[in-house]
Design a protein around this nucleic acid. Sequence first.
DNA 1: TGCGCTTTTGACAATCATTGTCATTATCGA
DNA 2: TCGATAATGACAATGATTGTCAAAAGCGCA
Lengths: 134, 134
Amino acid sequence: MNPESSAQRNTKQRSAVRDVLGETEGFHSAQDLHAMLRDRGERVGLTTVYRTLQGLADTGEVDVMRPPGGEHLYRRCSQGHHHHLVCRSCGRTVEVLGPAVESWAEKMAGQHGFVDVSHTMEIFGTCPECAGKG
Amino acid sequence: MNPESSAQRNTKQRSAVRDVLGETEGFHSAQDLHAMLRDRGERVGLTTVYRTLQGLADTGEVDVMRPPGGEHLYRRCSQGHHHHLVCRSCGRTVEVLGPAVESWAEKMAGQHGFVDVSHTMEIFGTCPECAGKG
DNA sequence: TGCGCTTTTGACAATCATTGTCATTATCGA
DNA sequence: TCGATAATGACAATGATTGTCAAAAGCGCA
C-alpha cells in the first residue's frame, strides 16, 4: 500500500544474480544465468532469477533486449540510456550513444502530441570478425 | 533448392489475410486476424494465418512489431522503411519517417566495422486523446 | 482441358519461455 | 531477539508460436 517504501530486501540470491551479471560479458537469457548460478554452486530457483531480473530491469540496473529469436536477454550495462549494436552472428555487443536519436524521438512524439515518451532501438549487423570469416 | 523460384502460390487463404490487413487500421495480432477472418466467414486455420503473416513479413508487405506485452503485431504499412509511434493506452499508431535515424544507425555500425546492418525502433507514448482523458 | 507434381492447408500436438501459486523461509526494523 | 512481511522456490499453468503430416488445392505442361 505504501508505494514509497519499496521495501527491497537484500537477499543472497539477489546478490548472486547481480554478481553473475557483473562478471559476464554480453547478453544472457534468464535460463543462461540460472545455469551459470547452478554451476557456481549457488542454489537459486529459476523463478527467482526471472523475478530478480525483472526487478533489476525496473530499476534500470540491467538492460533487457528482446531479439527476434525469442528469449529475453539481460545485461549489466552502463547506467545511462543507450542503445546496442549487436552482431547477429557471434552476439558481440557494442554500446552506442545517440543523443540525436533521443531528441529525434522526443521531437517526433511531441509533433503528434504524444507525452510520456519512451523508445526502444537495436541495431543488428555482422561484426568485422564474422564478416571476415564469412 | 532453387532460391530464385520462390514458387509462391496464390491461395484464397492468402488473399483473405491480405484483405483483412488491408481493411483494418492499426496493429493486430495473428490471433486477432484469425478471429476477424472467422467472423467474415472465411475458413482459415490459425496455423495458416501465422505462416501467411510470416511470409508477408518476409517480403516486406506487412510490418511486425513485438511490443513488451508479448504477442507479435502485424500491420499493412506503407512500403518504405519507417518507424512507429504507438500510444500505449489506445494503440493508435502513427508512421514516422526518420532519415536521420537511418543514417545514424548506418554510421554507428560503420564506425565499428559492422556490415549488413538493419535496425528496429519503436516509440511509445500516450496520445493526446488518452492523455486528456487521463 | 486434364494430369500429376508440389506447395499449401489445417487440425492437433508439442514446445518452451514466462508467470502464477502458496507454503516455507529469511530479512529487517524495533 | 522477535515478529511482521517480503522473498524464495518447486511445481503447475498459461499461452503464443512452431512442428507434423495426411488431405486438398494450385500451377505448369502436354
